[in-house]
Design a binder for these strands. Structure first.
Lengths: 332, 332
DNA sequence: GTGAGGAACTAGCGCGCGCAAGTAACGTTT
DNA sequence: AAACGTTACTTGCGCGCGCTAGTTCCTCAC
């Protein structure tokens, strides 16, 4: 025992000694090990004594003996952690905890130099909500992790369904707008998602018989929003579908500062239904995304990777809904 | 060896066997153990062979043998993770990594039921950027963690300096405002920080010879902002110091919807200089907070708790600065 | 010549668990 | 009666490391 504290850790051997039974029996009880038959009387005695003595499993000993850390590392991109994402993480955390695993979230710093957690923690599985960044999968594998989700070697299959932009464009079309632009974010952290939503918006436009949407990527706090509006108005654009609520808000603020009357001169719709969208004046129309069940699905993926469990059924269907507000109006 | 994979993990014993030396020597080299003398030739052979064989320390074995997980758990409140906080976390992460520790951030879910990470990870130390929540320190201790920072039993000493609200009130005073209100957030997650900033604002008011500031806590997206403005205007309030930019933005949006002309009818100043503040129309005055060096200080605290290191010097001085924008104006 | 100290390693125990292989007693089936 | 299966445990090895206590040889000072 290398600890120097006066209160030494309680071990399974202490329980065994106290009850006059073997340590293996204690282990079988504490783990409810399948394939072992333990009498109810002995089970109760073990559990009571463990509680009385304040027994805590030594996770390092367990990991060493079993060859498994029971850690699931979830790599998050550098996105804002909104309410939905937090709830998904907690859902996943709970499902994994019930199976005896700890979920750890980790956002690698883009220019960070510290060792990544997949090296220092030696997790059983590393998951990501987006495809792994270039070099990331290699780094994870070099650290000895063999279970990566999504599988970097799998063919690029069905992408995350993104129906919000379709809804945005359809709504503007139904309001009578025929010259619609798409506003993305210049933030490199979300470039992939911006590109995806832009493509979906263009899909919707094509389905409605509209030409490809003029597009600009703006910064939130500089003059690029104003510049983009100038260009669009010169081209006769009457409505904008924005990548998200922040982009929409930057456009609304810039438009007002330019002396525009919104939504008469320009209709703007955002995405993700953040609090920001309803704080602005005018309140900003948006798309809400219901992600309930996603966390449980992710946990199911992780457990199927590390244990002999079936893959979960197909992921939950994301439901998007239009939230109409004062930033959009009909166009004749 | 309980793993069934075809590529068994490389161990220190493998390196020792390969070089015809003892495993203890391998360990002394890999850990650069003080008090041991290893020839440069042997050191080089060990390091080369470890690299050649792809050796990775088994952290579970290390933790079990040494009695230390080398994990520092940082409990974060459910606050938005802004750019400054992310940078602080990376600073701390790097400093701890250099000392051989892994920093894990963890935001307990307010109504979550999964086991907290201080139980499942058995970290060497648990830190929090704010005082521990009621019952939290007890839960952490019950999990066997003896090192908590800040020490829950220490007398409540110097609180985190909060000079931003002082700056807010002083600025409004210098603009000629004599009837100033404080707007807090009704979000229970930030109740402590709201209370602290409110108290600091009142300190500043008292120092300026003003009576205690009328105060209201608002939600961001309901009618409470409008209600608060009604009450304040009825009481002759001409300016508001808001707990943060979100609260300020909710007030500005609500004021505009009520037909007020801002800042002529009401000046509003926020706090934290988020992008939101400069996206609104009118752009919102705010307070910026420079937290550089804080991460390194936190890492120093952690290392002094787990190793024989001196306490770091007093924490870095936070620098706050006024960012004047169009939401505030002079009052005659 | 003798003793002390340092260099450069070695032998091996312990950390606390998982779990395969085993034992003894009892009940059931042939 | 013998064989087999079940119940309810036990024995003890291995996981991979940290590190104490030790060994051998060499050098230097007295």
């Amino acid at each position: 025992m290398s600890q120097t504290t006066s209160t030494r850790r309680v071990t399974a051997a202490d329980i065994a000694r106290s009850l006059g039974i073997s340590r293996a029996t204690v282990g079988f009880v504490l783990n409810d090990t399948p394939g072992q038959t333990i009498s109810e009387a002995t089970r109760t005695r073990v559990l009571d004594e463990a509680k009385r003595l304040g027994y805590r499993t030594n996770i390092a000993a367990r990991a060493l003996a079993s060859g498994r850390s029971r850690i699931v590392l979830l790599v998050l991109p550098d996105w804002p952690l909104d309410f939905n994402l937090r709830r998904n993480i907690e859902e996943a955390s709970l499902a994994l905890d019930e199976a005896g695993y700890a979920l750890i979230t980790y956002t690698p710093h883009p220019t960070g130099h510290s060792r990544p957690l997949w090296e220092t923690l030696q997790p059983d599985v590393v998951m990501s909500m987006t495809p792994f960044a270039p070099g990331q999968a290699e780094s994870i594998r070099a650290a000895g992790v063999t279970r990566l989700i999504p599988d970097p070697d799998a063919p690029v299959g069905e992408e995350y369904p993104e129906d919000g932009p379709v809804l945005q464009v359809r709504y503007l079309f139904e309001l009578g707008h025929r010259s619609i632009a798409f506003a993305g974010s210049a933030d490199p952290r979300v470039a992939d998602l911006v590109a995806l939503r832009r493509r979906r918006a263009n899909d919707a436009a094509a389905a409605l018989g509209l030409p490809p949407l003029p597009s600009a990527d703006i910064q939130l706090t500089d003059a690029s929003a104003g510049g983009a509006i100038d260009g669009w108005r010169a081209a006769g654009i009457t409505a904008v579908a924005a990548y998200n609520d922040d982009v929409a808000a930057a456009l609304v603020g810039a438009g007002l500062r330019m002396g525009l009357s919104l939504p008469r001169d320009l209709s703007v719709i955002g995405h993700d239904d953040t609090p920001l969208a309803s704080m602005f004046q005018p309140r900003i129309s948006t798309i809400s995304v219901n992600t309930v069940g996603l966390g449980r699905y992710f946990a199911g993926l992780a457990l199927s990777a590390v244990e002999d469990r079936p893959l979960p059924l197909a992921g939950p269907e994301l439901r998007v809904a239009l939230v109409p507000r004062a930033s959009t109006a009909s166009h004749d």
